[in-house]
Design a protein around this nucleic acid. Structure first.
Lengths: 170, 170
DNA sequence: ACGGTTATGTTATATGTTTACATCGCATCG
DNA sequence: CGATGCGATGTAAACATATAACATAACCGT
C-alpha cells in the first residue's frame, strides 16, 4: 500500500499528505484531459485548497484561503464555477448535507456509488464502497417505478480516530 | 387501502388530497401531544403549506404562500422556527440535497430509516422503507471504525407518473 | 490574424439560515 | 391577585450560500 492511503478511506495517522495531494492533482490532470477540459490555474488552485485536508470545505472558505494567499480577492461566482467544473470532472464531490466540498481520493468508474462518511468531530470525509447498498437502493426505487439518476448516501458520525481520542482508555 | 394512500409512497393519480392533508394534521396533533409540544396556529399553517402538495418546498416558498394568504408577511425566522419544531416532531422532513422540506406520510418508529425518492420532473417526494440498506450502511461504517449517528439516503430521478407522461407510448 | 469557444471578471442579487434581544400569552405558585 | 417562569412569537440585523447577467480575456484550430 502506498503512503497516504488507508483501507478505511480516512487518512492514517502518519499519512504523507504531500504525495496524497500530488496524486489528486495528477488524477485531476488526467480526468480533465480525458474530458476535454482545461485544468487552469484557478481550477488547480481551488482544487489544492479543497484537497489541502481531508475535510469538507465551504466555497467561501476556499475563497478566504485563496484571498489570504494570492492577495487578490475573487468573486464567489469564480469559486463556484471552478468547483462546478471540478465536480463535473469527478475529482471533487459535494457533501450535500453540509453544503461543502471535498476532494476525491478513490477512483470510481462512470457513476459514483460510494458511501460518504463525514466525521462530526474532526470534519474528515471518506468514501467507502459497498455495491450491495446501491443495488438495493436501485431495486427499492425500481419497485415503485422510480428511475434513478443519482443517489446520495451520506453518513454523519464519529470516525475511528476521534472515537479513540474521546475515550483514551482501552 | 385508504383513499390518498399508495404503496409506492407517491400519490396515486386520483389521490384524494383533502383527506391526505387531514391525516397529516391529525398525526401531527398526536405527535405534538405525545412530545409535550404545542401545535400552534403558526405551526399548523406552516405544516399545511408544506403538506399542500407532495413536493419539497423551500422555507421562503412557505413564507410567500402564507404572505399571499394571511396578508401579513412573516419574518423568515418565524418560518424556520416552525419548521424546526415540525421536523423535531417528525411530521416534516428536510430534503438535504435541495434545502427544502416535505411532509411525512408514513409512520416511522424512533429513528427514521427511509430512502427518500425525489422526482426531478415534478418535484414529488416519497419515502420508501428498505431496512437492509440501512443495516448494510451501518455495517460498512462499522467496518472502518465509524460510529454512525445519522444517515441520509436521497435518490434523484424520475417518478413513475413522469416516466409515463414523458413517453406516452406503451 | 480571424472567429468560435471556453474561461474569467464584475456587479448585483437571490436564496437560505441564524443571532440577539424584546415582547406576549399563559399556567402556576405564593 | 400579582409575581414568576417559560414557551412561542415579533423584530431587526447579520451571516452564509448560490446564481444571473453581461463584459472581457485567453485559447485553439484554421
Amino acid at each position: 500500500m502506498k503512503a497516504g492511503s488507508s483501507a478505511s478511506g480516512f487518512p492514517v495517522p502518519d499519512h504523507d499528505h504531500a504525495s496524497c495531494l500530488t496524486e489528486v492533482i495528477v488524477r485531476a490532470a488526467v480526468a480533465f484531459e480525458r474530458q476535454g477540459l482545461r485544468l487552469t490555474d484557478l481550477r488547480r488552485n481551488v482544487l489544492e485548497e479543497v484537497a489541502a485536508s481531508h475535510k469538507a470545505v465551504g466555497a467561501y472558505e476556499v475563497l478566504e484561503r485563496l484571498a489570504s494567499k494570492g492577495g487578490k480577492r475573487l468573486a464567489p461566482i469564480s469559486i463556484y464555477r471552478a468547483l462546478d467544473t471540478l465536480v463535473a470532472a469527478g475529482v471533487v464531490h459535494r457533501l450535500e448535507s453540509r453544503n461543502a466540498f471535498f476532494a476525491c481520493h478513490v477512483v470510481h468508474g462512470g457513476n459514483r456509488r460510494q458511501i460518504v462518511l463525514a466525521c462530526e468531530q474532526c470534519g474528515a470525509v471518506a468514501e467507502v464502497s459497498r455495491p450491495n447498498v446501491f443495488d438495493d437502493i436501485q431495486t427499492a426505487a425500481g419497485a415503485v417505478g422510480f428511475r434513478m439518476s443519482q443517489v446520495l448516501v451520506e453518513v454523519s458520525g464519529t470516525c475511528a480516530a476521534c472515537s479513540r481520542s474521546e475515550r483514551p482508555d482501552k
